[in-house]
Structure formats: C-alpha cells, structure tokens
C-alpha cells in the first residue's frame, strides 16, 4: 500500500479533492463527502456567510475534512492575499488555493498575478496551491516561491471537456518536484481516471459532482475512478522499473 499524498505536512489517502459550489442544497455536501471519502474540499470565501448559521457553508463540512479556501473573485495578487487573510481569520486554516481570474468569459487564470500572490502568501506561512494555466517555466518559479502543489487546468472551468492540456500537464508531472493536482475541466470519472493514470498526484472535481443529478453517487463514482487511475499509474511504474532492472538484460546475449 502506498503512503498518502503529503501536503502542508498533512497526509491524504484519498486523492479526490472536491468543491462546495453549485450543489442544489448545502446538505448534499456532507453526504457527498461521506460517500466519496474526499478529505479535502475547496470553498469560495465569497460565499461564506459567518453571520448566518443556516447559510454558513462551513457548518456542512465535517471536521476530518481539510478546508481549501480559494480566492475566487480576486483579480490581483493583492486581492488574493486579502482573501487569504480573511479566510485564515475566519478559521478556515492555512491552506489556500490561489485563483486569480481576470477573464470572466473563459475564466482563465492570470499566471503572472498568481505567481506574485504565491510568493507573498508562502512567505506568510500559508500552504499555497496555485491554480494555473499549465506552463513549465511558471511552475518552476512557483516551486521556488514556495508553492505546496501546483494545480494546472485540464480545460476551462465548468467546460467539462476533460484533459485538453494533457501534453502540457505531462511536462509538469515530469519536471516538477511538488505534487501536481489537476483542476478544472474534469467532466466525467473517466477524465479523472485519465489524469491519475498520467501520474497526477490528485484531482480537484467540483461542478461535475455538485451539478450532477445525484451528486452523492457521482462523488463516489469519481472516488473509484481516482483510485483506479492511481493504481494503474503505480502498476505501470513497477512494471517499468522491474523491466529496467531485469537481471538478464534483453540484449545481454550480444557479447
């Protein structure tokens, strides 16, 4: 059995990360978490209303699930930093997903502002997970800036189009030392399985679960898909290393 994914000193056995947005009822969030076994869930601070108990989304998330507040609504590094600080003060913990979007049409992340925000927040002790357009030089700078993981998009947010940026994400998986968590665009469990099979360390799935007709069941389905994809990746790894270290090389007969 492999050890869990370590992020910010915490170990996560379940590699499916989920989101709180777009459910038809907040009550479904806890049920979905239970069915999927997801151990980390992202939450938009803009939707947290601490002044109203019934409306406060945090009430629907069990204690054993780690909160990943995101900076949805931020357009600059400065705004992202402010949101992160408000989230921390509100008791959402040290994790922060940086989501800086200046394009409301396709919701593409602003890589430059994201890098600036990562620097500032990592320095301030946050466990920073930046959401980016997959780009290797940027990913390297993010690592250096102290990012705990990198979250490249598979395709545009909410598009459900799957891993359209496959080649670019593969480059990140190949070259980065921090975990790669594929975020956005995953529309079906098979997309999630594909990402994991490629070697992603985890996936974040929101809309495809929350907007599903039966989000609880869909959450469970995604959880299986993620496990299957991960297992396939590990199986391939052992296969490759076994073959590479074979005691009698295939060309050993050539003397």
């Amino acid at each position: 059995m492999e050890s869990g994914l370590i992020l910010g000193g915490k170990s996560f056995t379940n590699r499916l990360f989920t989101g709180t947005g777009k459910f038809r009822s907040k009550k479904l969030i806890s049920k979905m978490l239970e069915a999927s076994g997801s151990e980390m869930i992202t939450i938009a601070l803009r939707r947290v209303d601490l002044t109203s108990k019934e409306e406060n989304i945090l009430e629907y998330i069990p204690d054993n699930v780690t909160l990943l507040p995101n900076t949805s609504g931020a357009r600059t590094a400065g705004e992202a930093v402010r949101i992160a600080n408000i989230a921390r003060e509100a008791g959402c913990g040290n994790f922060i997903k940086i989501e800086i979007i200046t394009d409301m049409k396709y919701l593409m992340p602003d890589n430059e502002e994201t890098l600036n925000a990562t620097r500032l927040l990592a320095e301030d002790g946050f466990i920073v997970l930046p959401y980016i357009n997959p780009d290797l030089p940027l990913a390297k700078k993010l690592e250096e800036a102290g990012a705990a993981a990198i979250m490249p998009l598979g395709s545009a947010i909410g598009s459900n189009r799957g891993i359209r940026t496959r080649e670019l994400i593969e480059i990140l998986i190949d070259c980065c030392s921090v975990p790669i968590i594929v975020d956005a665009g995953i529309g079906k469990p098979s997309h999630a399985a594909a990402a994991m099979e490629m070697g992603a360390d985890a996936v974040l799935v929101n809309t495809a679960i929350s907007a599903a007709h039966d989000p609880v069941r869909m959450g469970e389905a995604f959880s299986y898909a993620v496990k299957a994809g991960r297992m396939a990746f590990l199986a391939k790894l052992t296969e490759e290393s076994k073959e590479a270290n074979a005691s009698s090389p295939l060309t050993g007969f050539l003397r």
Partner: peptide, 16 residues
C-alpha cells in the same frame, strides 16, 4: 427555489 431543486445563494461576494 428549494422545491425546484436549486440552492438559493444569498452571499456571493466578499469585500476585498
């Protein structure tokens, strides 16, 4: 709204 299978969202912004 709830009967229609939708979640009413009261707050969707935070002053930053």
């Amino acid at each position: 709204i709830r009967e229609k299978g939708l979640q009413p969202i009261f707050k969707d912004w935070e002053d930053i």
